[in-house]
């Protein structure tokens, strides 16, 4: 059983074809990159996979069950977590609460238990809090647990968002431009972090990125999107040399004027 399988996924925004005939199969354990020029439809692919949009055509299977048409939180409950291009943390909640609330789908208790503080509540709340604490610890964020995300430096906010995604206990982690807006030092840390996370949590990571340094250092397999279509695919070294990819990024080679 494949972890994630996407078959002929196509999506239209009105008359605009954002994604066309997207196929993919992840067996589990890969580190995959999705690259392409701005507006190529990369984030749309993520939105389709995580259930935020419903594909116009095609099928998405995750963990063996069909997920296109499910609500995002239902897909998440199956073990898919993501981060966002523009950080979307809950800013009036503490970092710690951010990592707790994201475990909403397997809280294991409801309104009744919350109000009566039943044994089930105590037990599950303790578990949720412990998970959050442990994650903050390993991500080196313990110090900021009671801070509000908006008060943290940008790199840390990214890190909190990754932590929030990990608290879902995903088997597939989608990272949408994790290096955007980071300085070179932060990027180095990020590369280390992604590698380490994948090993430590035994995850499959799929990331969108513009920074070639990140893509080439981290990803084993790369898929290139342009105008919604897959134009190339393969191991990173190969893709880097692919003329179509170079053309999509840099444009047509100018004819030499004398």
């Amino acid at each position: 059983m494949a972890l994630l399988e996407i078959r002929e996924m196509t999506h239209f925004f009105g008359g605009l074809r954002a994604v066309y005939n997207f196929n993919m199969k992840l067996e589990g354990g890969e580190l995959l990159g999705l690259i392409g020029p701005n507006g190529a439809g990369k984030t749309t692919v993520f939105n389709l996979v995580c259930g935020f949009y419903r594909p116009t055509e095609g099928e998405v299977f995750f963990q063996g069950s069909r997920t296109d048409g499910l609500k995002p939180h239902e897909v998440t409950a199956l073990g898919m977590a993501r981060t966002f291009q523009n950080i979307r943390l809950w800013n009036s909640l503490t970092v710690f609460d951010n990592l707790c609330i994201s475990q909403h789908h397997h809280l294991g208790y409801g309104l009744w238990d919350a109000v009566w503080r039943t044994g089930r509540y105590q037990e599950n709340e303790r578990r949720v809090r412990r998970t959050a604490e442990e994650l903050l610890e390993v991500l080196g964020l313990s110090h900021y647990a009671m801070e509000y995300p908006k008060n943290l430096p940008y790199g840390f906010q990214r890190r909190v968002e990754i932590g929030r995604a990990l608290s879902i206990r995903p088997s597939l982690l989608l990272l949408d431009e994790p290096a955007a807006g980071m300085n070179p030092a932060e990027i180095e840390e990020l590369i280390e972090l992604i590698r380490w996370i994948r090993k430590e949590f035994e995850l499959t990571v799929w990331l969108i990125e513009h920074h070639m340094r990140v893509v080439m250092n981290v990803c084993e397999w790369i898929k290139v999107l342009d105008f919604g279509e897959t134009i190339a695919e393969g191991p990173s070294e190969e893709v880097r040399k692919n003329p179509r990819v170079i053309q999509a990024y840099l444009g047509e080679e100018e004819p030499a004027y004398a």
Partner: peptide, 27 residues
């Protein structure tokens, strides 16, 4: 008790960012 439980804080997450709440597992 409701607003101080992780369950109840889900509604604060909705206030802060509904899309993120929905995608990050809040029903």
């Amino acid at each position: 008790r409701f607003v101080n439980s992780t369950y109840g804080k889900g509604i604060v997450a909705i206030r802060d960012d509904e899309i993120a709440a929905e995608i990050m597992s809040v029903d």
